[in-house]
Amino acid sequence: MITVVGESLVDVVRAAGAVRDGSAHPGGSPANVSVGLARLGAPVTLITQFGDDDNGRLLGDHLAASGVRVRRVPSSALTSTATAVLDEHGAARYVFRLAWDLPAPPEPAEGTRCLHTGSLATSLDPGARAVEELLAQQRAEGSATISLDPNIRPALLPSRELARSRTERQVAHADIVKVSEEDLQWLYPGLAPYDIARSWQRTGPALVIVTLGAAGSLAVTQGDIVRQPSPVIRVADTVGAGDAFTAGMLHWLYDADLLGGDRRDALRGIDRQDVTQLLDMATTTAAVTCTRPGADPPTLLELHAWPSTASV
């Protein structure tokens, strides 16, 4: 079992001049990762919050349709939303209505081999404090692999310095860190992604992976660095690409029996060939998602059929 802890929200796109109407789409980085894992066939439980409203029902139906087991933590708030208001030129201004108020560290699902979290779940208080406490507890207990994707949202953070300090604390608890080059550029202006990844890896994680957009990805292990190019594709959009990458990465590790506290040494000793295969699956999962509008990760059958079904 993989337990994902984090936000579910609805992305709303509203045209210029509209007051209420807008297209609503299920979202939230941890929710997207859960959907990606479930579609690839991994057993996954999402611990999250959303309201008893129309947006909450949209999220619940979406998660159930993909096979995600959902455990809702009670909240009095309405379902979180991120609204993109488009002007007459199509430029977007974002308005957030967010709630993440976990009262205490949640208990992972029974039989959890991996705990994944990140994004608003690890940066938006008061819930982020409970999640950080959960990471510390799980690291001390040692029964599950800890996976982290910081997925930085600068507009919602108090300062670069505080965000950097908190992220570094969380990285030290993790066994696997996946982070985007864009996140690292914001956290550490002017520093090279590889140098940051190597520095992070030395604080505790067995594996630090940096996604580089169209340039592919790189992985830093205890004794190696592996680079993987991105396939050439026709991009519909990049919504959910990073979350799809994370889902592909964790699914590969699940299939390879490298998740769980008893597999920590094996994960730390992962070799170059296995890292290359991991990056290939994660990159391909993200690439397929980019060929389709929105956060719509592939099923395992669709992934195996690609690239024969892709149009470049």
Rank of each mutant, 00 (worst) to 15 (best):
L250P: 12
A163Y: 12
I146E: 07
R234K: 13
E161C: 03
E182S: 15
V239M: 11
A215C: 00
F245T: 12
L207G: 01
E161M: 05
P229D: 08
D243G: 14
S217A: 15
G190K: 11
V235R: 04
A214E: 08
D149A: 07
D175C: 07
P150R: 14
S199K: 15
Q201C: 07
R166T: 11
P150M: 13
V232H: 06
T203D: 06
W200N: 03
T221L: 05
G190P: 06
L207M: 00
P229V: 01
P189S: 07
Y188W: 15
A247P: 06
E161N: 01
R166Y: 03
L250V: 07
Q228W: 02
V208W: 04
S217W: 01
V232E: 13
L148K: 10
P189G: 10
L207T: 05
M249T: 14
L212K: 00
P193T: 09
L162V: 15
V171A: 15
S199Q: 15
W252C: 07
K178S: 08
D243H: 10
L157A: 12
W252E: 14
V177G: 14
S159R: 12
L162N: 07
V220K: 00
G216K: 00
L191Y: 12
R164I: 06
D195Y: 04
M249E: 13
A236T: 09
D183G: 11
R169E: 05
A219G: 09
H251G: 07
G213W: 01
T238S: 15
S147T: 09
P154N: 07
L184N: 08
V226R: 08
T238E: 08
V208A: 03
A163Q: 11
D175I: 06
H251L: 09
P205G: 03
L187N: 10
T203R: 15
S180I: 14
T211D: 02
P205N: 05
G240M: 10
A172V: 03
G190A: 08
G213Q: 02
W186P: 05
A214N: 00
D243M: 12
R160N: 09
D237M: 06
S165L: 12
R164N: 03
D237Q: 10
W200A: 02
S147G: 11
